[in-house]
Amino acid sequence: MAKTADQYFDDLRETRVWRSIFRSGTGSSTLRRALAIQQNVFLHLFSTKVRTRMLSFSATWYLGTLTLGTFFILVATGIPLMLYYHPSVPQAYHDTKDLQFVVSSGLFLRNLHRWSAHAMVFLVFAHMFKVFYRGAYRTPREFNWVIGVILLLITLLLSYTGYLLPWDQLAYWAITVGSNIASAVPLIGDKIHFLLLGGSSVNANALLRFYVLHCMILPLAAIFFVAIHFWRIRKDGGLYAHSSEPAAVRSRSRAKKKEATING
């Protein structure tokens, strides 16, 4: 009988090279499956087990997973885009034009990067509201919620800094309007505006600063906080499941029923 893909994969996991890299061997015992998560530097952020109930679509709508997916796509498309992009005026615009019309698949990569960025902002917002309406920010998950708020801000900043990079009319005026809001901060507003743009108006310095923020500082910050975000899910007891909270939280009517049981 021909081997199935599963068996080939198991064979691969049994080899010395694989085991030397991933530290976990083959086998489908609970122990082996737990080790596969726990012994991997990336996967060990997650817990080895998940409540079966939390796998249903309605529990999370997979919004966190999908947000991570958009982040992967953005990294995978952003790095190739950097290969054809010079953050200087007006070369940035011509490079974007080249990506649009000259470079093979450049148009597609830019489209994918841009639409994924919009999708990520949308998904982060959706994730936040979903978490709120499920009450998943409650003790002991308060701090993970705060990290989530930080990640929301980082996502907005990532998208905002990326908005300037094509150096077209759309980019230039959106950033001009947006950065002038910073000037409205009392007392230190003009200083913030000056530091953000590296000058008193949107020009070559601002483009370079936004480029460095967009490609280096903000992605690193995002990765840092995402790692904590995932790790805290495990440390705080896994994905929030409704019934692990006090009955009174679940719904008023059920709590009433239980109180009636006790009283009666």
Binding site: A5, D6, P80, L83, V103, S104, S105, G106, L109
Partner: peptide
């Protein structure tokens, strides 16, 4: 379904590699 999934994944991987190779060669 496993075959369908792995098959389409391999096609996508090969396609991505081909397009990536093309992308990395500047046309101008």
């Amino acid at each position: 379904f496993a075959r369908l999934g792995l098959g389409s994944l391999s096609i996508a991987a090969v396609g991505t590699a081909a397009f990536a190779f093309q992308y990395l060669q500047p046309n101008v």
